[in-house]
Design a protein around this nucleic acid. Structure first.
Lengths: 202, 202
DNA sequence: TTTAATTTCGAGTAACCACTCGAACTTTGT
DNA sequence: ACAAAGTTCGAGTGGTTACTCGAAATTAAA
């Protein structure tokens, strides 16, 4: 038994099912935000999907912005970011694998495409998340391109910094087109073509 | 004087200032939608910018969706789409020129980036516009890459169709990153690098 | 079993939304 | 000047929004 200096009892912390409850809320919010965007999605819609009242939802996430950040951070922990999981895996293989995987998980591409663009409007709660994410991604790919450049495997004239931003840009942009015409766009193919052009064969 | 068969007078058409009024509404809506997106922007906000009542605004554009389409179509007539205006101008020069120009016009890049991604959600009124726009852009660039391929100026292994989609994707994606960190991203540079890689020197 | 913290939710709030209606006011051809 | 059509807007409508409040139900530690 623990008491604090005021004699009141210490807080007990969340109940057993609380963690799963939060997770199911986050997953429902993922669906809603992917389908309608942040502004277009409503807390009521999320609550309906979970099967709880909107008021109860706000007990777990005190504001809509908090819920959005929870969705974004949860995605980060679950899905990858295009990096190699095996150090022996090449950059192009890692990117292509991630692109192919994203196609199979419904909502991932919608969520990022929609929310990322939406985040550049007014004071969007996801703005800091996306700016930091892009900075991190650029840093990560810059490092990989730099390593390739040191190994003499970067096409002459290619700047690693620009290539990092361009790879991310190509990826994002091809996802947008894929959302509008999935059967006409080969995401992995476009990324592979680009990287095969930038990176010289061993 | 014109009368129709019923004896009633023929409609007179809009008044003199109506055209300018519509245009000022469209420009205000352009600002609002660029800053807040379609769902985030409000008719009241547009009306306030123009200095008229929200009701009067709806006299010119009977619904918010109509206003959005007017904004998108107006943009098309005013700004270019990355094509060459002079047939002697090369593809890379035309693209770079358009990219540099877009940087100088506030709101153009915001508008397209935000609305394009937003348009893939539920039943967004701009959806058809963007899908058709992308189809048209791909067809246009495909034609140009094909012509270059016929002239033997396309890097071996590059598929004109994929290159068309990739160029557009790169352009869109680099605009998104530029919006978040304008001083760190060189849009024209990224596009030039890509095209210089795809297109062989004469 | 007691007891307090956590979880749930019904009811309400104030703000905002796109849009309607009807009546005034302005323009303009005759 | 007349009259019809175009324009403006105040007032409202029904709906939705995120969020608050207070109280009941549930959980679990002692």
């Amino acid at each position: 038994m623990t008491t604090n200096e005021t004699g009141t009892r210490a807080p007990r912390g969340p109940y057993a099912k609380s963690k799963q409850r939060r997770e199911s809320i986050v997953m429902a919010a993922h669906e809603v935000f992917a389908a309608h965007g942040y502004r277009g999605g409503s807390l009521q819609g999320v609550a309906d999907k979970v099967g709880m009242s909107q008021t109860s939802l706000l007990h777990y996430f005190p504001s809509k912005g908090d819920l959005l950040l929870a969705v974004l951070n949860w995605r980060d922990t679950v899905t990858g970011d295009g990096g190699a999981r095996d150090p022996r895996e090449s950059l192009v293989d890692a990117v292509v694998r991630q692109a192919r995987f994203n196609e199979t998980v419904p909502g991932v591409i919608e969520l990022y495409t929609v929310l990322c663009a939406e985040s550049v409007t007014d004071n969007h709660p996801g703005r800091d998340y996306f700016t930091q994410r892009y900075e991190g991604l650029r840093r990560s790919y810059l490092q990989q391109f730099s390593a390739l450049a040191d190994a003499g495997r970067l096409r002459p004239g290619v700047d690693p910094e620009r290539a990092a931003a361009s790879l991310i840009a190509l990826w994002d942009g091809i996802q947008t087109q894929w959302l509008m015409a999935p059967e006409r766009i080969d995401m992995a193919g476009a990324l592979r073509d680009y990287l095969d052009m930038v990176i010289l064969p061993e």
